[in-house]
Simulated scan of single mutants.
Amino acid sequence: MRRLADALGVQAGALYRYFATKQDLLTAMAERMVGGVADAAGPAGDGDWSQRVARLARALRAALLAHRDGARVFAGTHSTGPNTLGFADSLVGVLREAGFGDGEAARALYSVANFTVGHTLEEQAALRPGDGGPTDAGVLHEAVMAGTYPHLAATLPTLTSTDFTAHFEFGLRLLLDGLRALQR
């Protein structure tokens, strides 16, 4: 809160006039980040349900990637503002319109949102310069090659790839294929 106040040129106490706690501030930031994401679903009939769900997931990822540590901020909150609830309602609505039951649609919301936020959290951590953490491709490569992990060694080009869009799309496709199988 002090760093934010310094950046805004105000006293830290002035922020508490608007946000009672740091968590309230983070929740407001998370809510602001996802503004407009719900619109990605498009109107009913604009593509099949899986295309609409994929657009929502991609829009959430893009919104979080647009902000430094966006996924980390969003993951640490439980916003019930109109942007967050609008996203959730759009996704659940697409699935209900496609014939999924209420419970299935709700669980699919959790699955899609948690996958998207989790993937983006890891993506942003891996792209953080100079972190040197376990997501650093060089560190992973050395650890795998120093041990006896033949299966990991064979897949190192993919494991250390920074093509996060390809990784995301693969996971999203698995989720959608699983939902398609459930729908039958």
Rank of each mutant, 00 (worst) to 15 (best):
F168N: 00
G86E: 05
L174N: 03
G86R: 13
A181V: 07
G118S: 10
G147C: 03
Y16I: 12
A113S: 14
F115C: 00
A143E: 01
A137W: 04
A30C: 09
G132F: 05
R180V: 10
L182A: 14
A181D: 15
F164H: 00
A20T: 08
R55W: 03
R55V: 00
R184P: 15
G171D: 01
H151T: 11
L152Y: 12
A44W: 04
A14N: 14
V94A: 07
A57C: 02
E104F: 02
A146N: 00
P129D: 10
A57E: 06
L26T: 15
H141K: 11
G93T: 12
E104G: 11
W49G: 08
A20I: 00
D102K: 02
Y110N: 15
A59E: 12
L172G: 02
D131G: 13
R173Y: 02
P129K: 01
Y149N: 11
E31R: 02
R32E: 15
L15C: 12
R180A: 15
V10D: 14
E122N: 06
A105K: 13
D46I: 02
L95I: 07
A28I: 08
T160H: 00
M33A: 07
P150C: 06
Y18V: 11
H151L: 14
R52C: 03
V37H: 03
A14F: 07
A137F: 06
E97W: 05
T116V: 11
G45T: 11
T84D: 14
G118T: 02
L91F: 10
Q183M: 09
L156C: 08
R32K: 10
G70C: 03
A105C: 10
G130R: 09
F164M: 01
G101N: 07
L156I: 05
F87H: 09
A125E: 14
T148I: 04
G178W: 08
G132N: 09
E169G: 00
R173C: 04
T120A: 04
A113K: 14
K22S: 11
G171A: 01
S90D: 09
A126M: 12
G42N: 08
E122Y: 01
V53D: 06
L156T: 07
Y110C: 10
L8T: 07
M33V: 04
F100V: 02
G99H: 10
T155G: 13
A44C: 11
Y110W: 09
L4R: 08
G118M: 06
G101S: 11
G147Y: 01
V53H: 11
L174Y: 08
T84Y: 02
